[in-house]
Simulated assay, not measured.
Amino acid sequence: MKCCIIGLGVFGRNLAVNLAQLGAEVLAIDRREDNVSLIKDEVGAAIIMDFADTSPLARLAIDEMDAVVVAIGDDFESSMAMTVKAQELGAKRIVCRVLSPMHARLLRLMKVDRLVIPEEVAARGLAHSLLMRGVVDGFDMGSGHAIIEADVPGKLLGRNLSQTADIFKKHDVRLVTIKRRNDRPIGTFFKGGDIEVNRRTLGVINLGDTFTEGDIFVLFGAEKGLRDFLDENSAD
C-alpha cells in the first residue's frame, strides 16, 4: 500500500510512522525542514514542500497512491489547496484533518472520503478511560458502542473464556482479543527503574486460554454493558 501524508505535525508524523511500521510505502511531506528531518529515516521518502505552491504535487504520482492524507493542522487555506490539488491529480482516496466546522462542511461538499478530528478521537478515548474502571484506551464506534482496552478484571484472573462465557453474554460484551506481556519483556528503562513493557496480540482467543495478570482485554459492546461488565468483575 502506498500513502502520502501531507503535514507532519504530531498527528501527521505519528500517522506516517505507524503506517510505515505496518508495511506501507509512505511519502511524507511538510513545509518545515525540521519536521522532515525528524521522520526521514522512518518512512520511504520525506520531502520539503512550500504549501503555498501546490504545483510540485504533480511530480509525485499522486494518482498511484492508495491514500492521500492532508494532515495540515494550522493552515486552512493550505489544507484546502492541497486537497483540491490531490483531487485534480486523481487521488484514489483522500483523508483530511478537520480544522473547523466550516472546513468540515466544505470538505463534505467536495466529497472527501474521510474527515478526521484527532483531538475529538483522543477526547473520546480519554472519556472512556476516565468513566470505566480499568480502561487504558478506547474508541467510540457511535450509536452508544465502543471498543476499549482494559486491564483484565480481577475476578476473571486464572479463568478462561469457556468458564466465563456466561459473564460476557450477560452484558453482551465481546472479547475481541488479548494483549499480553512478552515472556521476556524488552523495553527502554527510564529514571526510577520503570520499563516500557512490550506486548503481543494473541489474535483469536481460544476457549481454553487462561486470563493472566497483566493481560489487556480488547472488548466491544454497548457502553453501559462494558461499564457494568468491568464494575461487576473488579476484584475490589
Score class of each variant (00 low, 15 high):
Phe76Ile: 15
Glu196Lys: 12
Ile72Asn: 00
Ala46Ser: 14
Asp231Ala: 11
Ala20Ser: 15
Leu8Arg: 02
Ala91Ser: 08
Ile205Met: 09
Val10Glu: 12
Arg174Leu: 08
Ile48Lys: 08
Ala122Ser: 12
Arg184Gln: 11
Arg93Thr: 05
Ile62Ser: 02
Ala61Gly: 07
Phe76Arg: 13
Asp34Arg: 13
Val136Lys: 06
Gly158Thr: 14
Val36Pro: 05
Ser55Trp: 06
Asp66Ala: 01
Ile5Met: 09
Pro56Arg: 05
Lys2Ser: 04
Leu126Asp: 09
Asp53Cys: 09
Gly187Ala: 06
Thr83Ser: 12
Asp140Val: 04
Gly73Lys: 02
Lys111Asn: 11
Asp236Asn: 14
Gly90Trp: 02
Thr210Val: 14
Ile117Lys: 15
Ile47Val: 11
Gln21Thr: 10
Gly7His: 05
Ile29Lys: 02
Ser100Lys: 05
Glu25Arg: 12
Asp140Cys: 08
Thr177Glu: 03
Met132Thr: 03
Thr210Phe: 13
Val197Gly: 06
Arg31Ala: 11
Lys224Thr: 07
Arg159Phe: 15
Gly193His: 07
Thr212Ala: 15
Leu99Asp: 06
Ile72Ala: 00
Lys179Trp: 05
Asn182Cys: 15
Leu109Trp: 10
Ala122Phe: 09
Asp231Gly: 08
Leu99Asn: 08
Asp63Arg: 06
Glu232Ile: 04
Phe211Leu: 07
Cys4Ala: 04
Glu64Phe: 00
Val17Ile: 14
His128Ala: 14
Asp63Ile: 03
Leu130Phe: 11
Ile216Tyr: 01
Leu60His: 10
Glu232Arg: 05
Ala104Arg: 14
Ala52Gly: 15
Leu207Asp: 10
Ile147Val: 13
